[in-house]
Computed example of a mutant assay.
Amino acid sequence: MISREVAWRIFAAEFNSSSYEIKGEGEKAPSFLISPLGAKINRIFVVGVLTDNENVGNENEPVWRAKITDPTGTFYLTAGQYQPEASMALAKLQPPCFVAVVGKFRTYSPEEGKLYVSIRPERIGKVEAAIRDNWVLETCKASSDRISAMEEAMKLGEPDADKLMQIGFSLPLAEGAALSVKHYHPENLTRYHAMVVDALKFLLPEYQTGPDMSADAAVPEEIEIAEEDDVDKEALVLAMIESLDSGRGAAWDEVVKKSKEQGIEREELDTIANSLLDKGFVYEPVLGRMRKI
C-alpha cells in the first residue's frame, strides 16, 4: 500500500519561487517540488480568498482556472475532467469568498531554465474567515521551522540530512533543507523572514477584512493621517476604498484624487493597490472600480 503524502502549508510567495522538481522514477513513484525553504512538496494545503474562477473549456468538458490569494501573493489553480470534485466545486463558487484547497503541484516549463508552478486541486470548499486566519498562523509557524532548518543547513560545509536530523529536525525538513541549499545556494533568508512578518501583520485587527464582514464596521468618510512617518499607507488606502464604495465599488479616479489629497502620489498609489490586490484585500468587480473583500 502506498501512503499518501502530507499536504504542506506554504505561502504563495515561497511556492511561486520554487524551481526545483524531482520527478518520480516509476509509474507509482511520487514527484516532488523543492521550495526555497526546503518544503518537499507533493501535496499542498492552502486557504485564501478566491478572487477569480473561469471555465476556459466548455459545458461538456469544463476546465476551470482560478486564483486564490494569501497575504503574500496568488496561487493559480487548474481543474479539468480528472478533478471532477474540484471542478464541480469551482462551478458553484462565486468570488470573492474564503476557500480551502488540498491538491498537488503542477509545473510548466516553456523553455529551459524557467519553471512555473500551479495547483491541481483534489478538493476545494468554502470556509469562514477564522479558518483562513488559523491557516495563516500555522503557515507562519511552518515557514519559521523551515527557515530554522535552512539556516542550520547553510552553516554546514556540505548540507546533509542526517546531520540536520541529529540537530533535531524531522526527516522531511532535513531532507528538504539539504536539497534546497544545494539547488538554490541562498546567501541569506531575509526575504522569507520578511514574508513571515508581513503575514503575521495581516492578522492584526486593522487588517481584518473579508467577504462576510459586517456592514456596520463602516469607516468615516474623512480620513485623517497622523504625522508619524510610520503610517501604514496600505491600511489607509484600504480604508479609503471602503469609504468611497457606495455599493458598486470605489471609482479609481476618486481613489486617486483622495490619495493625492493625503499626500500619496499616483505612482506610489499604483504600487499600494497592486499589493492590496495580490494579498487579497481588494478586487476589481469591473474595470475602473475597486472593492474591499
Rank of each mutant, 00 (worst) to 15 (best):
136 V>Q: 01
159 P>E: 08
286 V>L: 13
2 I>G: 07
54 E>Y: 14
36 P>I: 07
285 P>E: 08
273 A>V: 15
19 S>T: 15
96 P>W: 00
213 M>V: 13
114 K>C: 07
221 E>K: 13
216 D>W: 07
291 R>Y: 03
151 E>P: 10
219 V>G: 01
285 P>V: 06
229 D>W: 05
194 A>W: 09
111 E>T: 09
57 G>E: 08
125 G>E: 10
187 E>F: 15
94 Q>L: 10
244 L>F: 06
212 D>Q: 11
293 I>G: 06
229 D>H: 05
203 L>K: 03
60 N>M: 10
136 V>S: 01
53 N>I: 09
280 G>H: 01
217 A>Y: 14
259 S>Y: 02
202 F>P: 00
114 K>P: 05
160 D>Q: 03
179 L>H: 08
187 E>I: 15
17 S>M: 15
81 Q>V: 00
7 A>M: 09
4 R>V: 12
198 D>Q: 14
126 K>C: 11
86 A>Y: 01
50 L>Q: 05
32 F>H: 11
92 K>R: 13
105 F>I: 07
76 Y>W: 10
105 F>V: 06
88 M>Y: 00
237 V>I: 15
29 A>V: 11
184 Y>A: 07
270 D>I: 15
31 S>W: 12
213 M>L: 13
14 E>L: 10
249 G>K: 00
283 Y>T: 10
240 M>Q: 03
171 L>A: 15
72 T>H: 05
273 A>L: 14
237 V>E: 05
232 D>G: 03
221 E>L: 07
79 A>D: 02
86 A>L: 01
183 H>M: 12
139 T>D: 06
278 D>W: 00
204 L>Q: 12
210 G>T: 01
35 S>K: 06
195 M>R: 08
64 W>E: 09
110 P>N: 07
27 E>D: 12
243 S>I: 11
215 A>I: 11
